[in-house]
Amino acid sequence: MSHLSHREINNILFNLHNSNPNYFGLKDGYLDMHTMRYRIFGAVWKLAEGRKYILGYWFADHENDIHMAIQNAGFTNIIKTKKMI
């Protein structure tokens, strides 16, 4: 495992907070370890420095519940994608 310098970490954090867009994806049939049921999984992430940084994730029984959670969390500039989740 490579170690990042303090400067590299600061650059990554700066890019995470100041870069657009946020990506969003949904997939059905993931095991929610809190309920031990298969549910819909949704995640929001950013790409920076060639890496994916997860900003939030949710499990729900309905897709709309995940959309509401993302909106309530304050995420903006969301691009929905099916390729990366």
Rank of each mutant, 00 (worst) to 15 (best):
G56T: 03
I66N: 01
M33W: 12
F59D: 05
L4Y: 10
H3Q: 07
D32H: 08
K46T: 11
I54W: 04
T35G: 06
Y23C: 04
I79A: 06
N77D: 15
A60C: 03
K46G: 09
I66G: 00
F75P: 00
E8Y: 01
V44P: 02
I9H: 14
A73E: 05
A43P: 02
E8K: 10
F24Q: 06
L31M: 12
A73S: 14
L4T: 01
L13I: 07
L47Y: 10
A48H: 03
F59G: 07
G29M: 10
L47W: 09
L55T: 09
G25H: 08
S5H: 09
N77T: 13
A60S: 08
L4D: 04
N15C: 04
I40F: 06
R7N: 09
H6K: 12
V44N: 02
D61S: 07
I79F: 11
K46P: 05
R7A: 08
L47I: 13
Y53M: 04
G56I: 02
P21R: 05
K52V: 10
W58N: 02
T81Y: 10
N20R: 09
N15I: 01
N64R: 09
N15Y: 07
A60D: 07
D28S: 14
L31H: 05
G74A: 04
K52E: 11
D65W: 05
F14T: 14
I40D: 05
Y53V: 00
N72S: 08
G56E: 04
L4K: 12
S19Y: 05
G25N: 12
Y38F: 13
R7M: 01
K83L: 05
N11L: 05
N72Y: 07
H62K: 15
